[in-house]
Amino acid sequence: MRALVCEAFGPIDNLKVREWPLDSPQPHEVQLEVHAAGVNFPDGLMVQGKYQVKPELPFVAGGECAGIIREVGDAVKGFKVGDRVIAMPGLAAFAESVNVDHKLLMPMPAELDFPQAAGFCITYATSYYAFKQRARLQPGETLVVLGAAGGVGVTAIQLGKLMGARVIACASTDEKLAFCRDLGADETINYNRENLKDRIRELTDGKGADVIYDPVGGEFTEQAYRSIAWGGRYLVIGFAAGDIPNLPLNLPLLKAGDILGIYWGGWAARDPKGNMQNFSELLGFVREGRLQPLTTEVYDLDDFSEAFSAIGERRARGKVVLTMNKR
């Protein structure tokens, strides 16, 4: 089968689409014909050797995908050949086929196509965990989303609105902000030409933001935190800007504010039942028509470099997905 292979840690362009062997699935696994796979910021870090997890070389990256079951292990229950599923293999999703433990599968809702389903798991799960378990976001609270037009930012807008928050979307261009308004953002801030702290204070009548969702890091973190409300919650999602900020600790002291780390994968491994309950609720929102997963950047497997560049250069609006050639 064809797969996107990392032979040595380094630049994305060093990856190769080549033939890769695949064994028969173990008794607890299914073999999935992959139709699409979600691309996430950590995937780029992993192949460069900059992520906290370093797989043994060579390896096939990719943590989430969607496809059709083609083979089922003897111990698998609840799934059969021909089922359309969403999978979270953790690795090896950027390939035409992958073996996945059946506990890491979910039935794919009929309301989704393969690209939508492939990009559903990591970003929506991250944001829902951030809001539900960590921030305990309440209806009527003000939520500020940095990097709001990107893959996780989009999910934060959608889920924030679904949970009843007033959403202020922040991004670097007016075009991105128009996209955020189309998604339902109540207010927008262009932080390349507006003072982020002052504008958040203005839009909240001086109170500040109850919850701030930050997948960007860099220079805007301190500005944003200085606008937080008394008892507010700051969600550390990631560092797409490249720089890990140094936040003066007198700020959370003066605001009685929380700084909450959001490591969905670590939590999911420690609380699998809670994680599956979250997924059950998210898929319920999809089936009820309350949540429409957005996939706007779809690339062929051979165009992987463009897909990663869209994320790395922060050009992507919404989720980035790779689709597999069926040759």
Rank of each mutant, 00 (worst) to 15 (best):
R199S: 07
A36E: 03
A66R: 05
G38E: 13
L249A: 10
N275V: 12
S97R: 11
E194M: 10
E194V: 02
V167Y: 09
Q133H: 10
L247G: 02
F279E: 01
D303Q: 12
F41Y: 15
E96S: 02
E29L: 03
I259K: 12
V152G: 04
A256M: 12
M106S: 07
L251Y: 14
F114A: 00
T123Q: 15
H35W: 13
D198Y: 13
K80T: 09
P42I: 13
A240W: 07
V81G: 03
E306P: 02
L235I: 06
T296F: 07
D113T: 12
G151Q: 08
W230K: 09
V17M: 03
Q31W: 00
L15D: 09
F94P: 06
L105V: 09
A87T: 04
D101Q: 08
M163T: 06
N40A: 13
E297Y: 03
V216G: 12
C170T: 09
A224N: 01
L183A: 08
R84E: 14
L112G: 05
D174Q: 11
E219G: 15
E297D: 09
D174F: 06
A178H: 05
P115N: 06
K77H: 10
L322D: 01
G312Y: 14
I262N: 04
D258P: 00
K273N: 14
T296R: 13
L159E: 08
A93F: 03
G232W: 12
D13Y: 10
F304D: 04
K319D: 00
F304V: 07
I259M: 15
N195M: 04
K132G: 04
G150S: 11
L162D: 08
E187P: 00
C170W: 03
W264Q: 14
L254R: 07
Y124W: 14
L105I: 12
E187D: 13
W20K: 02
V39C: 05
H28V: 00
V72A: 04
K197V: 02
H35A: 05
C6P: 08
F220M: 09
P293L: 03
G38D: 09
K161W: 06
E202V: 09
R18C: 10
Y191T: 00
G217L: 05
G119N: 02
A178Q: 08
N14F: 00
D198S: 15
P107D: 04
G73W: 09
N195Y: 05
V321G: 08
A37Q: 04
N192W: 01
V211F: 08
V53E: 13
V145I: 15
L4D: 07
Y299R: 00
I12K: 07
I68E: 09
A93G: 03
A117P: 06
T188W: 04
C6E: 08
V85R: 06
I259G: 08
I244R: 10
T155W: 06
E222Q: 15
K255T: 11
K132R: 14
M276W: 15
E7I: 02
F59E: 04
K161E: 03
A37K: 01
R134Y: 02
K161C: 04
F41G: 03
G147L: 00
L159N: 05
C6I: 12
Y225K: 11
